[in-house]
Nucleic acid binder design. Structure first.
Lengths: 183, 183
DNA sequence: GTCTATACGAAGATAGAC
DNA sequence: GTCTATCTTCGTATAGAC
């Protein structure tokens, strides 16, 4: 028995995982409880805002996690880590899990927080490109493009149950960046 | 009053539209009925397979629609039509509607038909690239990459309520293709 | 912080009348 | 082809005891 309950944190983490695997509308309180093992009785104690608050916190957590991953110096190293993360999530879930931010966006839930996450990722990647000789405007366009390509590739990987689309994106993007970044 | 009922077709079209705007899990029979104006009483007459069959037909219809659009000769013309379609769908829906195939994929509904749709789009685009001097293997990788980038950009556009991500993808892709295709 | 009980609506699906 | 129940399950949310 934990010294103090960690049910709240487990619920947020479960919600984030369920968003990735089942989509936003299917991520119900019941499913989160079953997945996290948290007790029903304290849901509205921990989340007075109900399901909405729970989803919002899961989106914020997921956005932060990837934003932190992107905040590194070397652009090509950042890209590598980015692709490695998606490769792992896809394979570990047998191609059932994708991006939680995409899940809430296509369900038109928490659009504000989704835009926030995409914005921070873009900022981080663009800064990394800019530090390596790419003009600011192009750096931002390139960062947006890279994130879009990866997100789209992840969706295609899930449908096709194969890493091929992600590897296609990795190949094309590496080639593009090799020619664009100042060495 | 129509000579024979067109309720069935209206339901499939409504389902496709609702998939784009509300996601797969939220596209309920009730919502389709309200949107299409079709009568409740004949749902299981037209769709003995219930909601599953209705969603499947909507996915197939949407997949066909875009596959037909892609089956054109000139690669750059195809890309232009592809981007124009998404631009229009995003703006006309005030950034609330995206790709129905993405919707069913992130909800893990009808994965077979989703893979089918992506596959046909990829085939069409790759064939177009190959006819213009791109080696077969690269043509396929490039086609996958382009579709992934567009799909990801559409999701980002919805979150940010802006066409910027789609225009970033359009710019980068046009540049890439200009250098890759045989003139 | 956690429990049980409960209210209420929406969902998918079926049965039988017309 | 369309109608009106009706069944069952699941969803969010609240109330009050412990």
């Amino acid at each position: 028995m934990p010294r103090r309950s960690d049910a709240r944190e487990r619920m947020v983490r479960s919600a984030a995982e369920l968003l990735r695997e089942h989509g936003a509308s299917a991520t119900s309180i019941d499913l989160v409880l079953a997945h996290s093992g948290a007790p029903r009785g304290s849901v509205y104690h921990h989340f007075p805002g109900g399901r909405t608050q729970l989803i919002e916190e899961a989106v914020a957590l997921s956005g932060d996690f990837i934003a932190d991953l992107i905040d590194a110096a070397e652009p090509l190293a950042v890209i590598d880590k980015f692709f490695a993360l998606w490769r792992r999530w896809l394979v570990d879930s047998d191609f059932r899990a994708g991006c939680p931010i995409v899940s809430v966006t296509v369900a038109n839930e928490t659009p504000r927080l989704a835009a926030d996450a995409f914005g921070r990722w873009t900022d981080g990647l663009a800064a990394s490109f800019a530090e390596h000789g790419v003009p600011a405007a192009r750096a931002r366009r390139l960062a947006t493009f890279v994130i879009a390509a990866v997100e789209g590739a992840v969706v295609m990987c899930r449908a096709e149950r194969s890493l091929a689309p992600l590897e296609a994106a990795a190949g094309e993007i590496n080639e593009l960046l090799t020619h664009t970044l100042r060495k």
